[in-house]
Design a protein around this nucleic acid. Structure first.
Lengths: 245, 245
DNA sequence: ATTGGAAATTGATTTGCATCAAGGAAACGG
DNA sequence: CCGTTTCCTTGATGCAAATCAATTTCCAAT
């Protein structure tokens, strides 16, 4: 599966300064709380980098020297067991912030699923900025709280939900994300492959595929070309996400 | 199963002022960053409350008006599905902070497993204190990061580990907690019942029990009266926690 | 000590999902 | 446009954990 950028620009060969003022995601959760002046300070230590699909951004255990904003593309966060079993802990879309859950080292690995562009911050610089910009730290704490709430939803999903409930929950969360971005809540592009979905939901590709088929057959969803799912009844989907009946 | 307090003091009939200076957990992760003066300010809006075993501290969806420090006892955090399936997202011991993952409402329910004592803070007051005490907010962010890293470990566990790996991971985390508190890393009291362990590990009580039996039979652990587990080889346990072989 | 009730263990059976194994359908490069 | 590759789907079978069903053990109160 190939994921070309819409605008197949030459890859930024190395990091280049990031003009935040002109950034496509300057209204992202992370940057939106900053004034123009603060944004300018942020620019001073922000660099754009790009990576191809399947490139690793960082690995679990690496020294956590950088934080990122995803400005374009799709990123997976994941953990591995020694024998290769993989669990994806989250997907990041453009506008999402990368690097909340870490101490000295990253607690998980991050890999580009599609080609991505990232805005990279030096960690020390960013933490230094917290001193003069406490509301940025407040925002970070807020983001961390939200992430934690999401993580707990995922814990419930993995610990107690059936395959069907898991997939419906997943589709529902994509729908909500789509809606938040101003797109349709009922016509949902699925930008990741079956294996990634499986590794996120604690299932296998086969089970994900079979469950998609079941949902299609019972008309809970409609799948068209390019991996676009249409949900005729969001209420129904929400019910199925909690009660596989 | 009854969980009496060692010191079966009368229950604090209602909330009473909390003298932080004399608090048994004043060196907890949360309070330890505060100076005596700051601790005094904290005291001004901190109240001690106590609850019996099985009492609910708050429920998912309740308006999140209070944050807590657990000063004594054991608390479970959990989420429920409509049909009653339960997933425990975490256990809190004395010294642990309760209330990080929430926005306007609590993202999970909290219930006392043993009788507990809590130090209760009004949320607005605490957030107000962040203004004058930014390092307290920094500490909160740190705690949130740690929680998030832990949540992701649990996601890996629930999504990809076998029953045996889950139980070994759990025992290992109890061992580490025990060690951090200055107790033995190899002689581990298990203060919660089989059902709570099952609801935490995404299993059933029967499977937890069977898996305990297997670990006993192969001499990976030793179980003595009062639910105390002895681990002769922590290295081995760590291996079993990632690779059920 | 005795007893009653809750919790834990163990056994028998079922089941949902994983695993193994082919086909079939898109997507890409030439 | 065609061939190659990769991804997706579907089918057959196996297995780890759930479910159903008794005991047995552990405690706390008498």
């Amino acid at each position: 599966m190939q994921y070309p950028l819409k605008d197949p620009i030459k890859r930024w060969s190395d990091s280049i300064p990031a003009p935040c003022a002109a950034c496509g995601v300057r209204d992202s959760v992370f940057c939106s709380v900053l004034s123009d002046q603060e944004l300018q300070r942020l620019s001073s230590f922000a660099f754009n980098v790009s990576q191809d699909a399947r490139e690793i951004i960082f690995s679990e255990g690496d020294s956590a020297d950088h934080l990122f904003n995803v400005t374009e593309g799709l990123v997976k966060l994941y953990k591995l067991l020694p024998d290769g079993r993989e669990q994806i802990t989250g997907f990041l879309f453009s506008g999402d912030f990368l690097g909340i859950a870490m101490n000295d080292t990253y607690a998980y690995s991050a890999e580009a699923i599609t080609p991505v562009r990232l805005c990279r911050f030096n960690r020390k610089d960013l933490e230094g900025m917290f001193q003069q910009t406490p509301h940025l730290e407040t925002r970070m704490l807020n983001m961390a709280s939200n992430e934690l709430a999401q993580a707990q939803d995922q814990i419930l999903l993995l610990g107690r939900k059936t395959a069907k409930e898991r997939l419906c929950s997943f589709l529902l969360s994509l729908s909500q994300r789509s809606e938040r971005r101003g797109d349709s809540a009922t016509v949902i592009p699925i930008p990741m492959g079956r294996e990634a979905i499986a590794d996120y939901l604690g299932l296998t590709t086969e089970t994900v595929s079979r469950t998609f088929s079941k949902l299609k057959k019972e008309n809970s969803i409609l799948v068209s070309k390019g991996g676009i799912v249409e949900v005729p009844d969001l209420e129904l989907l929400a019910t199925l996400a909690e009660d596989s009946s």
